[in-house]
């Protein structure tokens, strides 16, 4: 039904005249080297009675194919990222915990024992010389395997996130973008969050402490890992976090509702952050210290 033998055949080749399901599958998976006069060929081959009948059949199959393919692709992308980033975090946590155990155990045997995952990797490469070493080196190998799997997941997330959320990924970096999607529960859910919520995603503990009345409100959640926040001096970080989260919220909406890449978002964000940091830019010499960009678009820096 979907083999390459049909590389010069229309989508209806081998499809029964009253089988829109098979037609939809061929539309989704088939290919051809070049277009041809498909309506005429379909009538000649008996697939359709006439041109009108052909277009009616094509319409049924194309609507069905696109609806199914869109639903599958929407499912696929963001939820797979959510699983991948959570699995990556689990692996890191487990690998670090076991690496501590390895370091503690190794310290009891070798005066030059190191710590951390790098040391576990080093140990994993040794030939064990005793039954105890056999266990210790074997444990170190598990740590190295977990760390390898985490690296592979990170590479996967870095590759996939730009496909699922091109603008969010460009603004936040693929890993942070995937974390935001994960914390919100999906791109759909993230696209419905106001900027203020995006700003504190991942800071739920401090947020609830604040709401109970015994802490100040958190300035940022996971977006703290972004260079635009972390690289801004502390007294300006709140502004930077607010501006960044505003643009991230917009990027998530663009990704969810249109999917088009809008490079102008990157440039606007850069400019606003420069202004907050008091850096003069080529396009803009109003960047005096303390000016927070009162041109706040939806969810931006307005206060």
């Amino acid at each position: 039904m979907t083999d390459d033998a049909h590389a010069d055949a229309g989508w209806f080749e081998g499809v029964g005249p009253d089988d829109p399901e098979a037609g939809a599958a061929r539309i989704r998976e088939g290919r051809a080297d070049a277009p041809a006069d498909w309506p005429e060929q379909a009538v000649e081959s008996g697939f359709a009675d006439d041109e009108t009948d052909y277009y009616a059949k094509l319409h049924d199959a194309a609507v069905r194919a696109s609806r199914e393919a869109a639903a599958e692709r929407e499912q696929a992308g963001d939820q797979q990222l959510v699983h991948a980033i959570r699995a990556m975090d689990d692996l890191d946590a487990q690998a670090n915990e076991l690496a501590e155990r390895v370091a503690e155990w190794a310290g009891s045997r070798y005066p030059d024992a190191g710590t951390g995952i790098e040391y576990a990797r080093e140990l994993a490469g040794r030939d064990p010389a005793s039954p105890v070493e056999e266990r210790l080196v074997s444990l170190a190998r598990r740590v190295a395997d977990l760390a390898d799997e985490s690296d592979a997941l990170r590479a996967f997330v870095e590759r996939e996130t730009p496909e699922v959320a091109p603008n969010l990924s460009a603004l936040a970096g693929p890993i942070l973008a995937a974390r935001l999607i994960s914390l919100a529960g999906g791109l759909d859910a993230l696209s419905k969050q106001p900027a203020g919520t995006v700003q504190v995603l991942g800071a739920e503990d401090s947020l609830f402490a604040h709401l109970k009345g015994h802490a100040s409100s958190p300035k940022h959640g996971v977006i703290f890992t972004h260079e635009y926040v972390r690289g801004t001096r502390p007294e300006k970080r709140g502004s930077a976090a607010r501006t960044l989260s505003g643009k991230l919220a917009i990027a998530a909406r663009v990704d969810y509702y249109s999917g088009d890449r809008k490079p102008e978002l990157d440039a606007e964000l850069r400019k606003r952050i420069d202004r907050i940091r008091g850096v003069e830019t080529d396009h803009d010499n109003e960047g005096s210290d303390g000016d927070e960009g009162s041109d706040g678009d939806e969810g931006g820096a307005g206060e």
Binding site: H6, I27, R31, D33, A36, D37, A62, V63, A65
Partner: peptide, 26 residues
């Protein structure tokens, strides 16, 4: 497209015409 019998939607990448040349006529 559902209400327009002459409109055929295709979830395809426009940079890869070979993935829809079996549907779109010449």
């Amino acid at each position: 497209a559902e209400d327009r019998p002459n409109l055929f939607p295709l979830l395809k990448d426009a940079r890869k015409p070979e993935t829809y040349a079996h549907v779109v006529e010449s």
